[in-house]
Nucleic acid binder design. Structure first.
Lengths: 138, 138
DNA sequence: TTGCTCCTCACGTCACGTGAGGTGGC
DNA sequence: TTGCTCCTCACGTCACGTGAGGTGGC
């Protein structure tokens, strides 16, 4: 059995994943990723690291801390239930609601004939409406 | 002419805006907000601070740094053109695209019969597809 | 006078970013 | 042997969060 799986050096991972080296080092210190080997001091990754990186990126987009992502990446993360994921999905939906508000606000600011959004009653009203929903993502 | 505009203490601002005191202090140090007066040491805000806070919150959602938000809040921010806003709108749209990807991914993870997303080919493929778009919000 | 809210100042934290100086594969 | 990539380690940064100890309005 020939197991000649392609090994990636860190530059290749940076190129394929679009994540800077400094970030990869941080994630490694937090136990989120790990090279399968070293060539001298140089990290050698296998192809699976790209999937892990994708999971980390998506989870960060969902507002997970690195510690939470560590839990998600654990082998038994989905054994005991998916409560964390359900809560995070709610947070994501709320986040999208806020984001849509920001997009609408920015579009209005770009179209607005007023010199500044502060002098525009429509914009002010829109902003005020966006405020009270601010919540912590827990 | 009676100018008895309602003054707000910091607790009232926290209640109405949903932003913690520590954050208000930081924003003040960065020149983003300012009390209109002090009662002894205690900050007294007018009603307009709520609009500024709303702008700050929306801009943060758009990925602005506090320094950039400071520029947006300047009286002549919209005099010289709206290039910054146009770029940020693009960043926001890209961010929403990522967010939608994360929402789809999470929903799939919750429905998925597999023990872990890593063993599910659909999930892995979805994640990989979400990766190469990672860009800095500049 | 007594709480209670508010204050300032310093330090901690989270997720990186940035050199400085050194190692090692091709 | 010479670059060039990669390494580790320490320190900086951004946007807060968290006490510690003190002030002051009601």
């Amino acid at each position: 059995m020939l197991c000649v799986s392609e090994l990636l050096d860190i530059a290749e991972v940076v190129r394929r994943a679009g994540v800077p080296v400094s970030t990869l080092h941080v994630w490694e210190r937090h136990g989120l990723i790990e090279p399968v080997a070293r060539a001298g001091l140089r990290r050698q990754y296998d192809d699976g690291v790209l999937t892990r990186i994708a999971v980390i990126a998506v989870c960060q987009g969902a507002g997970f801390t690195l510690a939470e992502i560590h839990a998600v990446l654990a082998p038994d993360a989905f054994a005991g239930g998916k409560d964390l994921l359900v809560r995070k999905l709610d947070a994501l939906l709320e986040r999208r609601r806020q984001l849509d508000g920001a997009i609408d606000g920015l579009r209005h600011a770009l179209d607005c004939p007023h010199a500044s959004p502060f002098t525009c009653p429509t914009f002010a009203a829109e902003l005020r409406a966006a405020l009270p929903v601010r919540q912590h993502l827990t």
